[in-house]
Simulated scan of single mutants.
Amino acid sequence: MNLEALDKGTAAHEATVTALSMTLERRGLLPQRPGLHAPAFDLGWTEDGVIYIAEVKSLTGTDQTQQIRLGLGQVLDYAQQIRQTRLASSPVHPVLVLEHEPSHPRWTETASSAGAELMWGPTFLKHE
C-alpha cells in the first residue's frame, strides 16, 4: 500500500469538503454533516425544498475511474437509504463532488443518467 498516496488523497478529500462547505456558506446555505442514524455521506444541505446529499472523492494519487465509480455508487446508496428510512420529508438529490474536473467528460452524463449530479472544485458549479 502506498501510504504517501493515501495521505495525499486524504488531505485532498478533507480540503475538498472544507472548500465545498465554504462555498455553500457563501451562497447562504447551511452545510451539514450526517446525523447519528443517517448514512455516512460527506456533506448535505437543503436548497429550494430539496435535500442534497454529497459524497466527496479526491482524485489525487488514485485511479480516477475507480474513485468516480465508487463515489457514484456510495452517493446513490446514501440517498436511497435516506428516502427509505423516511429520514427526509423532502426530495433527496445525490451529488458526487470531485476534487477537480475529471479527465474524461463522460462522467457528467453518467452521473446524470443515474439520477445524480456531478460537481467539482474549485467552483462547485452543477455539471448535469
Rank of each mutant, 00 (worst) to 15 (best):
61 G>R: 01
35 G>E: 07
43 L>A: 06
72 L>N: 04
43 L>V: 15
73 G>F: 03
106 R>I: 11
106 R>T: 13
52 Y>K: 05
21 S>F: 03
114 A>K: 12
104 H>N: 09
104 H>L: 11
61 G>Q: 05
91 P>A: 05
94 P>A: 01
113 S>K: 08
71 G>Y: 01
80 Q>K: 07
39 P>C: 00
19 A>K: 04
25 E>C: 05
41 F>A: 02
122 P>W: 05
26 R>E: 09
125 L>S: 13
42 D>E: 15
47 E>W: 14
120 W>H: 14
82 I>P: 10
54 A>F: 01
102 P>Q: 11
20 L>I: 02
41 F>M: 00
118 L>N: 03
11 A>V: 10
55 E>C: 05
109 E>Q: 15
123 T>L: 11
4 E>K: 13
72 L>W: 02
127 H>F: 12
64 Q>K: 07
97 V>Y: 02
109 E>K: 09
75 V>T: 07
52 Y>M: 04
16 T>W: 04
41 F>E: 01
77 D>W: 11
53 I>V: 12
81 Q>K: 15
46 T>E: 14
72 L>S: 01
70 L>R: 13
13 H>T: 15
15 A>E: 08
23 T>L: 04
102 P>Y: 14
10 T>L: 14
99 E>W: 00
112 S>K: 15
50 V>K: 04
22 M>A: 09
119 M>P: 06
18 T>R: 08
94 P>N: 02
60 T>G: 11
29 L>F: 06
34 P>I: 04
81 Q>I: 04
37 H>L: 15
75 V>P: 02
100 H>K: 13
97 V>L: 01
7 D>M: 11
104 H>D: 11
74 Q>E: 06
20 L>H: 06
60 T>K: 11
63 D>W: 05
62 T>K: 15
51 I>D: 13
32 Q>I: 10
69 R>P: 03
118 L>H: 01
56 V>F: 00
80 Q>S: 08
89 S>C: 09
